[in-house]
Design a protein around this nucleic acid. Structure first.
Lengths: 198, 198, 198, 198
DNA sequence: AATGAATGAGGCTTCATTCAT
DNA sequence: AATGAATGAAGCCTCATTCAT
């Protein structure tokens, strides 16, 4: 049993819970309050409104994901190894932190107040880091290919894999391990020269 | 009879419209009724409830996507060409039919009553077709690799790309054409032997 | 017991009641619903929102006051007599229809959506009629004085008298009859040349 | 001690501010506290409740208006001149202290706990002074007319003029100067024998 | 084939106020 | 002298749905 020093933590926790369990549109102040065991009013003591509550979660997610990515960079020195680790870590992160993944990457953007721009800057760093490492890992052999585009391809693959996994749309005959391993392999293959379309 | 289908069609059409314009959570029976010009009650003459309405749309989407995939198979004889066309068609479909794409692949499954199992079978066909073509195109060189897994990889990439595109999360410096072309290239590269993870 | 043919009338009636009894800020959808004996939701079947409900009352008031003024014009042929009757009728109206008077002339304008401009035109007519009759009654002796300003003076007096009366701020030693009679006398005195300030 | 009065003063000041800026119904303990920079709870150290806070302001207003009236009496020796000055001062006061005027004369009495009777006695003094001066200024020519009624007429006119002005219901073609001058003229004309109604 | 009337639950949020510290 | 935490009531409004016609 975790020890809650205050209501704020409980509110965040139950919001995360509702989010991953029932989806964004089922997060309501009332439901959160009921789960926490307080009045809806009490939530407003800690968060200005519903958006602020969601934003707080987004920020938490941004931070934890960023930290995980940083750790990948720190624990490997070879660019290719870093890249590989980043990919598997990203998947790992999404799989084990669905509540954060959902709010960071799957939230209907037009359903809530736009996340403050200043805070989004931190989010951009994550993608940029993928681009940087990918570029470095590939070396100078393909100077003609745009690293931003390639990083976007990698991101598409990882995001698609995570989304489908979280939505339980992956065939049950495929084990999680196989799924992750193969996805990372695919991402790694993007380090190789990509055959241009004719 | 004609009239019957007329109102039903209008309801579906306006629901699609609301869906793509304002997002799923802004679809309400009343809004649909207002757009159509009938009473909310009238909708219940054609659809048992809101879920049934959405399900009808999902079914429509499944069918139209399936049809598009079939056309790819018909218009090319070479497996590789079929595969390539299927990939670009899938992207094309998502980009131009966001309302269907969203409800088919992005709707939080807990948002609504589970889609009847029997209808999901038709959905599986689409993925299966990717697997089949992929398998055929690759030939017998890699009999050890599971075509289902590989098709899942392709699907992850395509789904990720479409999702990020629809969520307007793709860097604006990347043109749609470049994005599509490169995504298809990446998918095509999965036809090649994938370097096994060590 | 009045016979209500429908809920709409009851809603309007109870809203009027709350308005005059407790003031605008105590009019709430819930309270109205409770008084009527229906759900708050039911009110929305007849009025788009709270503002629309209030506006409907304002319109009713505008109409009934305007009608009363018109009757004054019709029942007298002499301008001075018309004017006198208009003044006493205005007071009479305010005293006996406080709910309408309050919403027409005392409602905090910034508390609610602005009354649709087109409908306010009818309201202006009332003041204009005072100005017209006043001007005619006074004849051409004082062509230099602005009839609009003078009508405003009359209006100020009548509005002040009504407001104080409705707010029960009039000394109880003054009977309503005396109060009305004297107020009308004062208004009539404005027909005479007003001594210019030195 | 100084500090004590300091916070109390700030609370009153910000309440006045909110009152004139947003209207009575937008005055809330929390908003006042936010403006002052203290907690809502702190307000309760100085005022028993919201009503007491408003009452304190009403009292302030009563005092300042009374003082202004007294100054009129002091600065003129002639009764008629005193009366004239009182009228224009009253208008001036309302125009420049809308926050006080509103709570003193326009607050729906049911909006708040009734103002303690003892404090209302002071309010009566103001009207009484109008009556006294009016009576003296008019001399003994009309001993039959009730000075209280006449003072009430004057008050009605002044109150109506102020109310309409504050509610911005005065035609914009009428300048403030003209409006004030003419209103005072009208009030002055009440010094003359009023033609009895037939 | 369609409507009109109505509901009960729930959405977000603000209010004045209290109580323990 | 002041705060921090919390509440219960109430504010406006929208929702999916039903029932009688």
């Amino acid at each position: 049993m975790a020890k809650y020093n205050n209501l704020r933590e409980q509110i965040l926790e139950q919001t995360r819970h509702l989010l991953v369990e029932n989806g964004y549109s089922h997060v309501s102040m009332r439901k959160v309050a009921n789960l926490v065991g307080c009045t809806p009013t009490a939530i407003y003591l800690y968060f200005e409104n519903k958006d602020a509550l969601i934003h707080a979660l987004i920020e938490e997610g941004m931070d934890s994901l960023h930290q995980k990515i940083e750790e990948c960079l720190a624990s490997e020195s070879d660019s290719a190894a870093q890249f590989k680790l980043m990919c598997s870590s990203f998947l790992e992160y999404g799989f084990t932190n669905p509540e954060y993944y959902v709010i960071m990457f799957q939230l209907p953007t037009d359903e809530m107040a736009p996340f403050p721009a200043e805070k989004y800057r931190r989010a951009r760093r994550n993608l940029q880091q993928f681009a940087d490492v990918l570029h470095k890992a590939r070396g100078e052999q393909q100077p003609l290919l745009d690293p931003l585009v390639d990083a976007t391809m990698v991101w598409s693959l990882l995001h698609g894999a995570t989304s489908l996994y979280l939505a339980q749309r992956i065939d049950t005959r495929i084990s999680r391990d196989v799924f992750v391993t193969r996805t990372v392999d695919c991402a790694m293959s993007m380090l190789n020269p990509i055959q241009q379309s004719s």
